[in-house]
Nucleic acid binder design. Structure first.
Lengths: 259, 259
DNA sequence: CGCGCTGTTGAAACTTGTCAAAGTTTGTGG
DNA sequence: CCACAAACTTTGACAAGTTTCAACAGCGCG
């Protein structure tokens, strides 16, 4: 129930590098060749339209682990599509409190928070070496007026984010610690699956503290919940490596409020 | 810090009913005459563009207190601009848990959650007798391809909602009960002010339980926090009528985490 | 090889939830 | 217009869940 993403699973590891040879040119653009098409903005576009989008999504940017993609307050100019890697977004307030508001994987769009005020309202940080495609927003709006499918896709992506947030509010507002972690693991599993990875075994890029911040819990509580899940046989944990042994068990933990 | 809305304050009680006589015709449309212009979608549009928008925002719909504007699962066809009244949106999950995800006042847009899947993902309920303007979405997308300012306004409205959600996550993830209620009251005050009402005195349309659901608290906790605020002299409560006596005190309660 | 960051675990303290009872307001039907 | 029922609110006592504080273990990087 948590996040309702509709695209079908798809292999990502093997890029369809068809005709285009791997040259400097092929590094510049890619939407039309990108394996993330169905997750990103370009689903359902015609060949010609894709070519136009390629013209827009010119530059890529590489980030090392720990680098900021943007910071709260930075002027908003572009959206970013995660091409490879893993990000978190977080919000800080004066008194030092902060919260992770999301984790972004390949094919997901970052930066939409900046549209409303022309300045970003959160920080985006790479949790591993990553690469993003830059999508200059003014140009995206311009092209959207021309390409109906692009406009619609973009609206959908924004709306999907709203629905995702609803799910997170639900989590933060009504669930207890273990339910939150179960929801988190199931969500991760689902998203890895969508990207062609194993649904049952994956590597978390974030620390317990970051998970806790995202889930509205302290890191110790997260750690304890992991331990209990392991004791109960739901998962096997080894640091950041997670193996889900009983996905149905996790689901039930969520659905049947264990009274 | 909670919600960053930029439009200036504006009187709403007195509609500028200029030329158009109050006939059945004038009931049909209104964007060009609407006092909510600056809060809604039509800011910055030219006269001609406004006329086109008027053509689109044809119908209005009245709802009595308690009526649903839409329900989770309903096919998505239109957005709704609150013209008068007060709404809540909430999400339910199978096991009975639910959470209020927002309260909407005049000039705010409802329904954007439905864009991503073509079906609404939450319920919208009128908390008092209300009236909304219907904005057929397909037509809005169509007109947005023509009117740049409309497209941009709409993107901003969606993005503003994302930023609002960030604030709510912050609240749910990092604040304790009294901080949550203080943030809630300050937010209400700000929004009433924006609509030309008193910043210090207002009538809450929702029950303690709905406030609690929104803030991730039980109704008893909300009630206790109200009582404590009253004891401390921050506010005067009389059922749903709130008078803020020490707005600065409430702010400090939020900012300086009282260690 | 050791230092620092990250993660685990325990016990105590604190916050919020739960259950229960009584008071208040609102709405409806007579 | 009143009376009664239903819905909502307040308050208390107690229970449960989470955080806090603290100590220690493990891994990874320089």
């Amino acid at each position: 129930m948590w996040i309702k993403t509709t695209p079908r699973p798809r292999e990502i590891s093997q890029l369809p590098n068809s005709a285009i040879p791997v040259t400097l040119v092929s590094i510049k653009v890619a939407c039309s060749q990108c394996s993330l098409r169905e997750l990103c903005l370009s689903e359902g576009l015609s060949k010609e339209e894709l070519a136009k989008l390629d013209g827009l999504v010119g530059t890529r940017r590489k980030l090392r682990r720990g680098q900021h993609l943007y910071r709260a307050g930075d002027p908003f100019e572009a959206l970013y599509a995660v091409r490879t890697g893993f990000f978190k977004t977080d919000v800080l307030i004066e008194d030092g409190r902060d919260q992770v508001t999301g984790f972004q994987m390949t094919g997901e769009i970052l930066g939409m928070d900046g549209i409303s005020t022309e300045a970003h309202s959160c920080n985006a940080v790479a949790l591993e070496d990553s690469e993003v495609c830059l999508i200059p927003f003014a140009q995206l709006e311009h092209l959207s007026r021309e390409i109906k499918a692009l406009q619609h896709n973009f609206n959908k992506v924004m709306s999907r984010e709203l629905v995702r947030d609803q799910g997170l509010m639900m989590l933060l507002g009504t669930m207890r610690a273990e339910e939150r972690l179960a929801a988190f693991l199931l969500n991760m599993s689902q998203r890895f699956t969508l990207r062609g990875y194993s649904p049952a075994e994956f590597h978390l890029r974030m620390t317990r503290e970051e998970i806790g911040s995202y889930l509205g819990l302290k890191l110790e509580t997260v750690s304890r919940a992991f331990s209990r899940f392991q004791e109960e046989g739901y998962i096997a944990v080894q640091q950041k490596h997670i193996r889900i042994l009983d996905i149905e068990g996790l689901r039930q933990l969520l659905n049947h409020r264990n009274i």
